[in-house]
Design a protein around this nucleic acid. Structure first.
Lengths: 219, 219
DNA sequence: TAGATTGTTAATCGATTAACAATC
DNA sequence: TAGATTGTTAATCGATTAACAATC
């Protein structure tokens, strides 16, 4: 994929929101949309929308806007969502299980190849059609069927160690849901953190701030 | 809480990371730490750390740095984490259950008052010590015991409707884990989104980008 | 005291917003 | 054609980084 500009992290974080909106519009049979309308629906300025999209090429047409399916497919291709990615779940505790049952992996072109857990009662069983293995099997699985993304849902104490194992095997992406900073030294592994507690703490901060404002205290 | 400066969203997003680090340091009996050391451990510049902290007052001492417990308690107080917040879980599906079992709510001063679900088999049961009610009970519970934070883990189709109900009841914070943009009009409700798919999509983008770079393609 | 490190002011860098020629 | 809207360049705004006096 060839880009026109350097893509900022903020832009990348907005791409899924564009895709989400475009899916909505497509389902409602809207065939085209302007940057102004996209902005209105997502709380962005028209300029921002056009700047974001122009990082990846020219999707629109003057006087008309953007063709919804075309832009959607364009963005999906840019994000790699049109290719199938092999995924494994490390840790079949309740968060792992919840993801297995409720994340629309298949619909979004992710193939959940296996789950891994040290719990002997789980090993050999199936969770929503995905078989659970002992973690030491990961190496063999990866050799047989290369893993693109490891979803890390092990207990916090095992997070760093498991992450290192994954990175050492040469798996290139970790989706980290452990609320632990992995602190990996590997250059060639991409990590995306989803820290539940961090998010809840931020919410709490804003809640307190809003209540202070109502109480008339100085902010 | 009185602040020196306007606190940017980026700064707020970093506060939980400081707290996480300070907890670590406290457990290892480190009694003081410099902005340089904090920066090294979190991948920030010393300046950035000092700028962030100076939004909330003067926690440090020249030539010494920051006292770990003092800074930790200071930040916790600023974020409101030293006060107890009443929480309910809307939607006791597998994500709701996973949160009930694995989020350290209690240890972090959140009191999970109740869970709500339309599933008749769940109503009346207990999940990890939390009783499940029919959603229409929320109103009465909130009158009896004011809810600070609603955790939204209902299916996507019900997300917007449930959010509106919550906001109409006057509950001031929603932690949204539904992968849906709620689009609330209420000014006085604080929403924090945790979009699983958005996060996975961002990871996928970076993975593709990294692979393109390895393949020597132009970026 | 001398070295270390803060809090804050100034400089730089990057992201957002505005403006506008091109054109559907 | 006239109105609408793009893609891009320039202007503005905000966040990060650097510098430094104050001082533990």
């Amino acid at each position: 994929m060839k880009y026109n500009k350097i893509v900022s992290g903020n832009t990348v974080a907005r791409l899924p929101k564009y895709i989400r909106l475009l899916n909505d519009l497509e389902q409602r049979d809207v065939d085209h949309v302007s940057s102004g309308e996209i902005g209105r629906l997502l709380g962005l300025t028209p300029s921002q929308v056009r700047q974001d999209l122009s990082c990846f090429g020219s999707f629109g047409a003057q006087g008309y806007g953007y063709n919804v399916p075309r832009l959607k497919h364009g963005l999906q291709s840019i994000m790699g969502l049109d290719r199938t990615h092999n995924v494994v779940i490390m840790g079949a505790g309740s968060i792992g299980k919840a993801l297995l049952c409720h994340m629309r992996f298949k619909e979004n072109n992710y193939r959940v190849v296996a789950a891994f857990d040290v719990n002997k009662e789980l090993i050999g069983s199936e969770l929503n059609g995905t078989k659970v293995y002992h973690p030491e099997q990961l190496k063999y699985l990866h050799e047989k069927c290369p893993i693109d993304i490891c979803v890390l849902t092990v207990p916090a104490e095992q997070a760093k160690h498991t992450a290192k194992t994954i990175a050492d095997l040469g798996i290139s992406a970790i989706w980290n849901l452990t609320n632990v900073d992995l602190g990996l030294q590997h250059r060639n592994v991409v990590v995306e953190d989803m820290h539940f507690l961090d998010s809840l703490f931020s919410l709490t901060f804003y809640l307190e701030e809003a209540q202070d404002a109502v109480a008339g205290r100085v902010i």
